[in-house]
Design a protein around this nucleic acid. Structure first.
Length: 415
RNA sequence: GGCAAGUUACCCAAGCGGCCAAAGGGAUCUGACUGUAAAUCAGACGUUUUCAACUUCGGGGGUUCGAAUCCCUCACUUGCCA
């Protein structure tokens, strides 16, 4: 198991390797990974953790899915600036959403059934005095200051509040609590969380004289230096209401050649041999994009189900490039447009306004600019008049496909 | 609590009374080239009813014909002192 996750590139840092190796190869252990409700949905960065949890469970180990009802109220220190606090009711609502998402990736049956926990359950009843006496005493300020997340902020001009500074103590306390209640001996998380992970292992060591382990996964980066998990500046969410399965599929399909093999290792359950074969295919026939297609299919069907993945492919096939939109039957076209951002408008609406209504452009000015740049198409016909109206270019089915640039699409239903 | 410096558009950052809708870089978007790729080149990048008007330079108030630029005040950040 250890070799497996190392090969997949899932281990960036960890506690003692030899001990971890034998722990993972031995009888089932209990492990946990936490997710903070700082948004109504998890995103692709969290998916790495979810899939690692799933891999470990498939290997027989027992997962604890923690959603941070209390840590979400505090917020872990980001390298740039202090977070804005969300109110308790909002965070509580998000906890519910995240629990549902986490559940989808874990099995709740059998000997190693997963369990969901919420750190608010043991944090809320704790008094400030008990916290300082029982937990705080184990923490040295010197050590706390040295954590990357803290020192980065201390050295920035944003500084850090006592609230966020305390985050590592809360997360350490979670690990201790889970160690005590569930005999949990391993925590996984992103390598940017390393300081928070070790804060837990250190605390268990001090409070219980026992050793616990942590694995930090690497930060996923694109080979061209841009941020992974963003499309047009927007995060890719796991909630289909926030990122449609179509957009999700497209995101993976557009993966760079130089990144696609690494992505297959991390985000799919393909075997080593299957991935090696795809690596050869990328080198030999890059233009076929077999690896990208397999990646997009596997991840989309894993997250959204095969039906949604198939619908995403059908929509892309219907809309992309082939030109003959009128050759499509109405039902196919309509379901494809429903997958996209869409709007219903009269035929007299200016194209520029439709770009704004569908979210393809942020403002009318930007929409006109796009048209002037020759980047706007209706039903694959370039629009060259900024004042153009939808009238005349509507398909007989009273629908129109709006496109900005090569691949940003939206649907228009004519009323 | 005292003193000092700072808060500029998505991010970094120049500007220090009119020539400022605000230099430069990054990010982003569009076009060309392509494989719904990368690299490269070109253009765009506050809003709008775009030869012009309107709203922006932490918040509020003031001086001035005129303020991102000067003054007062509040908030926040950083550093030094206590």
């Amino acid at each position: 198991m250890w070799e497996e996750i190392v090969w997949r590139g899932l281990v960036h840092v960890s506690t003692n390797v030899d001990e971890l190796k034998s722990l993972l190869a031995g009888p089932p252990i209990t492990y946990y990974c936490g997710f903070d409700p700082t948004a109504p949905s998890l995103h692709l960065g969290n998916l790495v953790q979810l899939l690692l949890m799933r891999r470990l469970q498939l290997a027989g180990h027992k997962p604890l899915g923690l959603v941070g009802g209390s840590t979400g109220l505090i917020g872990d220190p980001r390298p740039t600036a202090e977070r804005t606090l969300n109110d308790a009711a909002t965070v509580a609502e998000w906890v519910g959403y995240l629990q549902a998402q986490v559940s989808k990736f874990l099995g709740f049956d059998g000997d190693n059934a997963a369990r969901l926990v919420n750190n608010l359950d043991w944090t809320a009843p704790l008094s400030a005095i008990d916290f300082l006496r029982d937990i705080g005493k184990h923490f040295r300020v010197g050590t706390m200051l040295k954590k990357d997340a803290v020192s980065a902020r201390l050295n920035s001009d944003a500084g850090i509040s006592y609230t966020e500074f305390s985050y590592q103590v809360l997360q350490g306390m979670d690990f201790l609590e889970l160690y005590r209640s569930y005999d949990c001996v391993l925590q996984t998380g992103g390598s940017d969380q390393w300081g928070n992970l070790t804060s837990g292992t250190d605390l268990i060591h001090k409070a219980e004289s026992a050793s616990a382990h942590a694995i930090g996964t690497p930060l996923i980066t694109n080979s061209d230096g841009t941020k992974f998990g963003k499309s047009e500046g927007n995060a890719i969410w796991l909630d289909p209401a926030m990122t449609s399965p179509y957009a999700f599929y497209q995101f993976w399909l557009n993966t760079d050649d130089s990144d696609v093999i690494e992505r297959l290792k991390i985000f799919t359950f393909l075997t080593r041999q299957q991935i090696d074969e795809l690596a050869v295919a990328v080198l030999a026939e890059p233009f076929k994009r077999e690896a990208q297609k397999k990646l997009a299919w596997d991840v989309t069907s894993l997250v959204h189900g095969e039906a949604a993945a198939a619908a995403a492919i059908a929509a892309a096939g219907a809309l992309f490039g082939q030109g003959e939109l009128s050759a499509l039957d109405d039902a196919t076209l309509e379901s494809a447009l429903r997958e996209l951002p869409n709007t219903t408008s009269p035929a007299s609406t200016p194209i520029a306004q439709l770009l704004v209504d569908t979210g393809l452009s942020p403002s009318l000015g930007a929409a006109r600019r796009s048209i002037a740049e020759g980047g706007v198409y209706v039903n694959n016909e370039r629009v060259d008049d900024e004042a153009a109206v939808l009238e005349g270019s509507v398909l007989p089915s009273r629908m129109a496909v709006l496109r900005r640039g090569k691949k940003t699409l939206a649907g228009v239903f004519v009323e």
